[in-house]
Design a protein around this nucleic acid. Sequence first.
DNA 1: CCTACCGATCGGTAGG
DNA 2: CCTACCGATCGGTAGG
Lengths: 230, 230
Amino acid sequence: MSIATDLSEPSQAEPAPLRRARGRPRKAVHERDDGNRRQELLRAAARLFRQQGFDATSTRDIATAAGMQSGSPFYHFENKEALLAAVMQEGMQSALHRQAAAMASAVADAAAQGHTLSACECFRVLVRSHFEVLLGPDSDFIPVMLYEWRSLSPEQRGEVNRLKDDYEAVWVPVLKALHASGELQGEPGLARMMLFGAMNWSAQWYDPAREATLDDLTRSVLQLFLKTTA
Amino acid sequence: MSIATDLSEPSQAEPAPLRRARGRPRKAVHERDDGNRRQELLRAAARLFRQQGFDATSTRDIATAAGMQSGSPFYHFENKEALLAAVMQEGMQSALHRQAAAMASAVADAAAQGHTLSACECFRVLVRSHFEVLLGPDSDFIPVMLYEWRSLSPEQRGEVNRLKDDYEAVWVPVLKALHASGELQGEPGLARMMLFGAMNWSAQWYDPAREATLDDLTRSVLQLFLKTTA
DNA sequence: CCTACCGATCGGTAGG
DNA sequence: CCTACCGATCGGTAGG
């Protein structure tokens, strides 16, 4: 919530708690561990989980990709499932940050020009940010969350679900406004699911080496789903 | 190649057709084998692959679910991958049949009333049929195809892809007509991907025990994607 | 289709 | 974080 600090630290999901334990606390590891190895594990795991799936990826694969020996991932994570959960939580934290930043930036831009954002403009910002999270740089984390759901324990599923609810909550008033004005039709709950389906499916087919850009995808969603194209 | 002998050799992939080969013909195994056990394996595999994923499902799980011993699935299928490919091909064959039947029935109904189907009506029939295939009875096969793609060999992927292309080909002229009349906007290729995304995602969240029916979903798609709701 | 079995791999751990 | 290792499971096969 604080506006002043924008400094990023490369570890999000489970910060080594210096004073306050947030979530389930993690043991402070050897002094020289600055969290980089953990980050490397997370990135390697995200990439491999996405490419091959959770079950088809061995912890040995991940260790090798992170330049470690086979047993070393278990120094950073309790087990393989916890590694998967951390990938998802990291992805959702990042998505939430990016979403908030995109909205804040758009609101500021509009204010600088002396007007406020319309529901349609909000919608465009959210859609564009979603594609960025889904298909932009470092975009393995969210697809893993979308498609490796099954492999989480029920408790982990609950935690990730809470983050996902936070993410979707930002959309709700925007979709409600669009529905009220008639720009978005159909039962709002179903409309939200269909909309996310249309966007999320792109993680399965989108090839950045091909022609369409993220702006193209964004425009397409607006054209398809809104009755009055802005 | 000889027709008279139907004595089994435990390899299936290349069938000895008795008279008429339907689809890809399948060799008759031990006299008493009428194909039911193979079907039971396919159904059990489809269900388990969908629930747990391909890699998390052991061939022993499948054998047990089909009432067999652990080694017996390999009497019917060369290996686990071939079982997965067969699930997907079976699912796509069935989807193609159901799609064709739905279209034929709708065309016949319209003709009986002395008119032809509009693009919008064709669209509704296709969408409804797709939801039936995706969420109706025996609906494990297509979700497995959608979400276990990675585990196929390249050759198997090619075969399944051909069936998928056949399935999508039916949609193309309909979408083209809707685009020409302005009822469907946006670049047609992207529009198709988004549309399938919106529909296919339902396999991840739809709960038949809840309120929405397949007709509700169909109506929602039409309302969301078409500019003029019929 | 069953029985009995094999080689390989995997998640995870003890001990440093 | 590495070394060395274990128990369990898994896909698959021979032989009937």
